[in-house]
């Protein structure tokens, strides 16, 4: 039995637990605070808090603090791969609406980018592909 080298870490784990609860509370408070006036700031703050919480869980609860160097072999490649996975999605999916043609915009999941006034004439309706520009019947 390995009772001989057992170290009681309950106190340390309790501290980690209260830190996690505290960080959750801070994250919740950020969402309702003035930081969200500039959403990017609020989002960054919340993600930093989440990363801190994740590290606390990984290092202490998942015992990585007390593991030997093999931990890097498993965690670092996985972290790099997952970061790259997200990054390679950005050009095709993240920026997908940046260069929508007006005709494509018409089929987007939102019409919020096309603000209209009462006097607007529809660009697509009267555009180069509208019925008016088609050859008239009987012109031959």
């Amino acid at each position: 039995m390995s009772d001989s080298h057992y170290v009681n870490r309950t106190k340390l784990f309790s501290i980690v637990f209260f830190l996690l609860v505290g960080l959750t509370a801070i994250s919740f408070a950020v969402a309702g605070s003035a930081l969200m006036d500039q959403p990017v700031r609020g989002w960054t703050a919340m993600m930093v808090i989440s990363c801190a919480k994740a590290l606390l869980v990984i290092i202490f609860f998942m015992h990585l603090k007390w593991e030997s160097t093999w931990k890097y072999v498993l965690t670092i490649p996985a972290a790099v791969m997952s970061t790259l996975l997200v990054l390679i999605l950005i050009p095709d999916i993240g920026n997908r609406t940046d260069d929508y043609a007006p005709t494509r915009q018409k089929f987007a999941a939102s019409d919020l980018n096309s603000h209209q006034s009462l006097d607007d004439t529809d660009a697509i309706h009267h555009g180069p592909f509208s019925n008016q520009d088609q050859p008239r019947h009987g012109s031959n």
Partner: peptide, 22 residues
């Protein structure tokens, strides 16, 4: 880790790439 980062990453990318303000 990679499974969930694919899901969460897709969510982030879809969310911030959605037509603005929508």
């Amino acid at each position: 880790i990679m499974f969930f980062s694919a899901l969460i990453g897709s969510y982030i990318v879809l969310r911030f790439g959605a037509p603005s303000g929508s």
